[in-house]
Structure formats: C-alpha cells, structure tokens
Nucleic acid binder design. Sequence first.
DNA 1: GATCTTAGTTTATATAATAAACTAATTCAA
DNA 2: TTGAATTAGTTTATTATATAAACTAAGATC
Lengths: 395, 395
Amino acid sequence: MRTGNISLVKKMNKQLVLKLIRDQHPISRADIAKTTGLNKATVSALVDELIAEHFVHESGIGESTGGRRPLMLRFNADAGSLIGVELGVNYLYAVLTNLNADILWEQRRSFRPSEGQEAIIGEMMELIEAAIRRAPATPYGVMGIGIGVPGVVHTESGTVVFAPNLRWDDVALAAVLRQRWPERPVIVENEAKLAALGEKWFGAGNEFAHFVYISAGIGIGAGVVLHHQLYRGVSGLAGEIGHHTIDVNGIRCSCGNIGCWEMYASEKYIERRLAEEGRSEWLDERFSIAAMALAAESDEQLARILEETGRYLGVGLLQVIYAYNPEAVIIGGPIAQAGEYVIGPARQEVRKRILVKKESEPSIISSKLKEKSCAIGAAASVLEAVVLPPEFAAV
Amino acid sequence: MRTGNISLVKKMNKQLVLKLIRDQHPISRADIAKTTGLNKATVSALVDELIAEHFVHESGIGESTGGRRPLMLRFNADAGSLIGVELGVNYLYAVLTNLNADILWEQRRSFRPSEGQEAIIGEMMELIEAAIRRAPATPYGVMGIGIGVPGVVHTESGTVVFAPNLRWDDVALAAVLRQRWPERPVIVENEAKLAALGEKWFGAGNEFAHFVYISAGIGIGAGVVLHHQLYRGVSGLAGEIGHHTIDVNGIRCSCGNIGCWEMYASEKYIERRLAEEGRSEWLDERFSIAAMALAAESDEQLARILEETGRYLGVGLLQVIYAYNPEAVIIGGPIAQAGEYVIGPARQEVRKRILVKKESEPSIISSKLKEKSCAIGAAASVLEAVVLPPEFAAV
DNA sequence: GATCTTAGTTTATATAATAAACTAATTCAA
DNA sequence: TTGAATTAGTTTATTATATAAACTAAGATC
C-alpha cells in the first residue's frame, strides 16, 4: 500500500525538477522555482543532489534580465548509456544510446525465421555484448537493456507469452539475459508498446498526454499512452487492436477470428491485393512499402491499393478514437513508409465517419523515429525504469 | 504543477485511512496501522481528525486477540446525503442516498421526447428540489448533485455536447443548476460513465482495477475504469464504443457510419429482427427485454433473436478486450435484462474468437445495480468529488 | 556611483511522520 | 488469584523536509 511519507515528497519533487530540467534545459534554479512553485531553497537543495548524482550539470551563465545572471542547468545525457534491441520476425536491431537517445552505436543482423529460439537468443546476446563493449566511460555505464518483441509479454517475468510470427510460446527471455547480466535491469516488452514509449520520450508523442502509436506492418499492434503512461491492461493485451473485427463476414485471420482489422490495413492486405491485381512482381523478397510508394507516383494501380489500405486503416482508427479518445494517433511501422498515400485516405475516412467532429478528432500523424521507434523505445523503457519513472508525473 | 509538500502527504494518508475504513469496517486503529504500514501514532491522529469531521465513528469494542480489546471504527455513511439523477430518453429518475448509496428516497417521472429542453430541465429541477426537501438532517446535508445524460459531455463546464437521442446539442445543463444551487457541487456526466462509477463503488466492479461497464439499450455506450479511475479521454469520447465498426459492408447507423456495433447488439437489432420475423406484436409500447426473456423460455424464435444479439455482443466485446484488456466486463442496460440468453452466447463468442486464452479473458458478468446503476453512479460521482477522490488511490 | 533587480544561499521555523516509551486492558498459565 | 505476556492506543522526543525570511552575490539602469 502506498503511504505518503516525507521521503516520498522529496522523491516526487526531485523527479519533477529533473523532468523539468530535461524538458526545458537550459534552465536556472530560479526558473524552476517559478514554474514548479517550489521554494528557491528547496530547488537548490534538490539540484545540488542531482548534480552530485551526475544527472544534471551547470552549463555556464545565462543572460541577465535586470539582475544577477543565472547559472544555467542542463540534463546530463552522458550520465550513462542505454541498450535497446528490437527483435523482428527475421532480424535483430540493437542500439546503444546516451540518455538523450542519441545513437552511439547500432547494428542490424538478419536471421532466418526457421532458426530456433536458442540460436536467436544467442545472436541477441552477442549483439548486446558488442553494445556493452562499445559503451563509453560514464558515471553509470550501461544502465539497462530493453528488448522489444512482436508478441504479448508478461513484463514482471519478462516472458514472451505468445508471439505468433516468431512461433514463440512462453519463452522466458528476460530470465536468460538476467542470468548473464545479473546487475543490469532487463526489460522485455511488446514492440508496439516500446515504440510508443520511444515516440513519447523522443518522438512525435512528446506533447501529448493521451496518444496511440499504431505499428502497422505484417500485422497491426498498438502502444497506448494514457495520462503520459503506457497502458498495458491486466495481462499486457491492451493495444492488440489488430484483431479488432471490422467485418464479421470477412476473411479469416491467422488468430482464428474473422474479419480482423489487420487483414485489411496491413502488408497482408497489400500482398493479397497485389496478387489479385496480377502485380505479383512486387511480392518479391525486395518488396518494400517505401519502394511501392515511390512507384505509385506514376502507377495508378499501386496508388489505388495503397489508398484502399489507408481507407481501411481509417475505419479501424475510428475504433481507436472511440476506445481511447486520444489527442493524437501516430502511425508507424512499414505501412507508414507510404506516407500520405496511406495516411491521407485514413484521415479522410475518419473525418467522414466520426460522430462528434470538433475536438474529438485526433491529429493523425506519422512516426518521427521511423524504423528506429522500437529500438529507441526499448532504450527509453530503461530510462523510464531507472532514471525518470513516470508514476509521479500523472494526475 | 503538482509538487509534493508536507500537507500532500497528510492528505494522501488521510484518504488512505478513510478508504480503508470504508472498505473494511469495522476495523481498529491497530489494524489500520498494520495494513497500511503507517505508524500507530499517525493513524491515531488521522482517525481523530476523521472523527471530528464526522466521516468516521467509533462503534464499540471488538474482540481481544490476547490483549487489550480494540475500539472498532466505522465509516459514517450518514455524514451527508447525495443526489443522483438519470436523464433518460423519455424519463427522469432521481435518488437521494446516504454515503453508502442506500436509497432514502427515489422518484421516477416520464416525459415525451417532444418536450423542449427547458421543460425537461424544469422537471429535473423540481425532482432535485423534492430530493433536497427529503434529505435528513446530517452534518453535511446534501453534498452535491450528479446527473447522468445519454450523450457526450464536457465535464468542466457541465455541458451536454451531443446527445442524439435527446436531440440536444451544446446544452449548458450544469450552468443552470449551479445558478440555482450555487453552494452545491453539480456534476454532469455521460450515463454509461456514471453507471461504471456506480458499479465500481457499490456494485459488480468493486474488486477490479480495470473494468468496462457496457450500457446496452437503444444504443451501446461504455464506462471505462482503468487503474481504479474513470477514463474519459481528451474530450470525453472514450467509451463511445457503440460506434465501433463490426461490419464495413453492413447497415447504416444514425451516426453516419456503416456497420456500427450498436446496430447489431442493441435493442435496435432486436426490433429489426422482430419485424423481419413477423413478430411485430413485441414492437409495442410495452416492449421490454425482460418480458421477452421470460417469453423466450417457451418461444424458440424469441430465444434465437436474443442469442443472435448475444453473439454480436460477443463480437464487439473482443474489441473491448483488445482495447482495454480489463479484468471484467459488466453488462448493464436493458439488454442485460435478458440475462444468460444474451450473456451466455456473448461469452461463448469471446471464448471462440479470442487470441490468447488464459489470463486475458475477462469475467463477463451482469450489472449488480441493474436499472439503478446510472442514478447511483451519479450519486457516487459526488462522493468521489467531495469525500473520496480517487487520485491518490492509483499506482 | 547609488539604487533597483534578479539569482542563489543561509538560517530559523513549521509540519507531519516516526520511534520509543508509556498507559490501558486483556489473556493465560502457574 | 496473581503476575507475565500480549495487544491497543497515547504521549513525547526526534527526524526529515518544505518554507519563509533574511542574507550575499552580481548584475542593470538612471
């Protein structure tokens, strides 16, 4: 039971100050006192501790506004490093970043889906090992490892409960990594949820209290941020909205259900339509939505397929809007590479069908971190776990 | 900006103690100290204040467990009264309750939908006036007025933004009531959201951190409780899930969209099917789902129609599950009167179609407060606003 | 160069939680 | 029956923290 005690107050205020410095640096102690309402003395004491802990540093003297010049404070993004890994269906992508998500090192590696769990986890561990070796000398070193996986995750244990595209079932991923690096926090989480965190901390979601990140690729998943916090539901299923029914009489989905959204607004749909229209040359290994969008400029048939996908995307977005009523919807994943070819029709469809127009229409925008959302989000999840817990920010 | 200061700590702890007493009374100071982890002295001081404020009283001496016998504490449900009003499409229902939602007085009144806003608001004010007259002498008297309306609401201003079934549009309801009773808090909120609050405080939602209340009648609305708190979204649209598309090629809904859930799992569907099957005798004024369910015991055709409705309900519930991943879904509103005729098939449909079985399947249960959910929820909203704010309970 | 402003620190004070010692009231066993 | 042990609750002293006010520092402006 969370009781209030005096040290809780201090923790809250310290977090508040650190968050403010991170968001608005360079900023002076006096500014912090003004914007937070905290007493100047309190701010000074907290800042001194944050400086001692290397999370903040003084970065010179600011401009006078008619009196003594302020000492400006900055968030020290080099207090430590973060490792983020994206486990894709047939690739691994790892980044090493500072606390500002600046990429210090990255590596991408492909594998065949037929490779077994052990082999894939082995490759992942090699990547992480490589990242740790590249980590610069910082006060805290590598502060933790975040891993995004395409499936449903039990976060406490770090178990991948269900990842159909990997054919994983109850894989205790975190346990293996924690055994190898017992001193470092290891976070395993769904890829869309981490991508949402990435966009929240370092991307297009920064300014919103409530937003939904849509990861549209082979399937559709979402990361839902409500009150500035990732919402997981009771067992981490919240956001598995690719399996929202949009056509009860539609086609069968791999999940067993019928007419799932992800059969109509994902790569699966595009592939199906390409085959139907006799454009199977695009069903190649080198198939990429980005290339298709480029070709669509002078190829009406391709443009039409993308537009249809966008319209179906819009149909499903209405459900997202009615469920979460977010300030913004951020479209990410491969489908987002088609840009306005898909997002434009989606917006139109939403505008056409929505119940209450003004205020309730969210901004429908494109991911800012693009193909790096998940890996950066994985890194951000470590930042959140270790440095900037969100629990006090809400309300 | 919410800064921590010492009085915040006290507020948190006092709330915690009060909530614990309400939930677990009779309870002793020693028990409270044990379960919260607060110091005995702290607990005593807070309890003394709560007693002075009339929210708690000592209710005699409990059983010894091998030492001095404890003084038992109880929540004082008679510290004040609450007024809750449900504004239906063609009726008003008002209750006066104590702080335990025990109904002290209630009144139901019908009106014709053709009556104008002013007339309806006038009748509502008469009802509230009557309730205030009946309020017993208590330390705090009538602590506030909560009103549930079938539409989208802007809560700060208490404006009904959009209520299609009432044909209301931007009606500043709270403003009128606040003018008449300037000293009393007036809360205007969507009916399904208030019903969810009612079930949370006094009904089937009591034990859940995350649950969804489904109000299924002429349309479908939902009240979404996440982390023990009502979730509204950025403009109060969250939970308007009746307009989730379940059939892109389906029938047109009054909202302008096509294939909305509420065309398939509400009274609208039942009426349509009754007409199709030539059972228009049930389309009478006295049409009631409860009566239909009774008749269905010996009428296969009626049973089948209810079952179909239930199956469509289940299809849409999957979307609720994927969106919110709640611990429970509480079915309320007129459709819930059909009981297992509808809820049974809905459960089956969910079980059949859901992605990850174990853990992620919520309990699908029936409303406990039945037709009183909304009015009691309206009263509960006052309780939450004035006595037991939920903000500290979360996390 | 005197005065006003702003930045930041130091010192004294207030609030609230806590620990420990206390009183009160009971059980239980010799 | 009595006294030790146990539990409930209060009183007192202590501690942590935020705050207010007084202070020092360092500039701007007239």
